[in-house]
Design a protein around this nucleic acid. Structure first.
Lengths: 219, 219
DNA sequence: GGTCCATCTCTTGTATACGTGATGCGAAGT
DNA sequence: ACTTCGCATCACGTATACAAGAGATGGACC
């Protein structure tokens, strides 16, 4: 996520831009990524553009068939469902690790986030709530104190982020989500790994269910 | 792993070669990957070499600092330990999913593998045993019937493969490993997700412990 | 009128050329 | 003698040029 380090190279620079545009939906799934057009747009040659695309391919955001160009990864609903499924387990793991490893300081910050989320929720500030929500999950990833797990979680989160946001529109979901977060925090603060894992897993599973529902409506 | 599809492009082709050499230890961690030398070696220009390296960077096998070239990722012991930790949980998840989802046919093949491993074990065929061992874990990944989880597991496995093999030299480990596999299969065949997860997790955790031991001896 | 084949174009894959930042060595100064 | 500054070299990042495959378009034949 916070990949906003100063890009040392042009390729890296435009990779971030394209990545961002994909997340924001400016570049929609299925959109063709023409090397020459992108090169022209950024005022560069095709070479750095190619490199940027190649990186995105490896991160899964873009698919590329040899000699046939690259397109923004079309969202495969079946795969999305599987991603949500794994996500719930991975986040569950994060929570379990976090319950065992978070420092008092970290726990305090986590609790503070829930309080902040409550305030934003009452103020009906959906954008704000979404931002804190995201920070909350991120804090749990960090709390796992396992870099590898963190990267997995963040990578999944990034891919699913657009669809996670959607579910906040679900009636009553914000309150439910808030309550679940509180439960997760309680379990982590109480250093109860099993419960933290179970609760977090369920929390994300609910999101997955809502997504599945959304999909079935779409189809 | 079985990335042995026909490479449609030269870049892809040499990526596979380099990747293989890293896994086999021909290219050891810390080895510098000079673009020009590699280009000369494969009879290509620097361009496809660069692309191959870039892919390896994104897969984590190679690290690259701007303007300073690429080196085979030096093994960070701390990170390795974390990878093993996550691996045990991820494989546990695979086993749990597999217990719920493997078809009778798949289960039969899994059982057959254990039988084969037993035979190879008695014949003291370490190489053979290692191969079946690997196939076994792969079969469990497949059994999860979740592409995303599979990819995660395989990616981790690939990174850790060299060190997983080492542990077979541990006294009595082969027999232990074999018994654990049998337990995992039993749980999967019995469609007992919780037990399958627990047993598989423990199985991999033992490997992690042996690795940690190995590390502490090295240091 | 439809289908099949040839060619044509357009974009990608690869090669080569160029500029620039980074490392290492040597000389000069303290 | 040690440190520091500057220069040279060398590899990397980027630009441009060339080759080759995939899809499109048109015509010819059935």
């Amino acid at each position: 996520m916070s990949d906003q380090k100063k890009p040392a190279t042009r390729a890296e620079e435009i990779r971030q831009v394209i990545e961002k545009e994909i997340f924001q939906g400016v570049l929609r799934p299925g959109t063709r990524l023409d090397e020459e057009s992108l090169a022209a747009r950024f005022g560069l040659s095709r070479t750095p553009v190619r490199e940027a695309i190649l990186q995105l391919v490896y991160s899964g955001l873009v698919v590329k068939k040899p000699r046939q160009g690259a397109v923004v990864a079309p969202l495969d609903l079946h795969r999305m469902v599987q991603m949500f499924e794994v996500m719930s387990d991975v986040e569950g793991l994060c929570a379990r690790y976090a319950a065992r490893r978070m420092s008092p300081d970290e726990k305090a910050r986590l609790s503070a986030m829930v309080a902040e989320a409550e305030a934003l929720c009452e103020a009906r500030d959906l954008d704000g709530y979404y931002a804190v929500n995201r920070a909350f999950h991120d804090a749990v990833y960090d709390g796992s104190h396992n870099e590898v797990l963190k990267e997995m979680a963040r990578s999944l989160f990034a891919r699913l982020a657009p669809y996670r946001r959607y579910q906040l529109n679900h009636p009553g979901r914000v309150d439910g989500s808030l309550a679940e977060h509180a439960e997760v925090v309680a379990a982590i603060v109480a250093a109860d790994p099993e419960r933290a894992q179970a609760v977090m897993r369920k929390h994300v599973t609910i999101q997955a269910d809502i997504f599945a529902e959304f999909v079935s409506i779409m189809a």
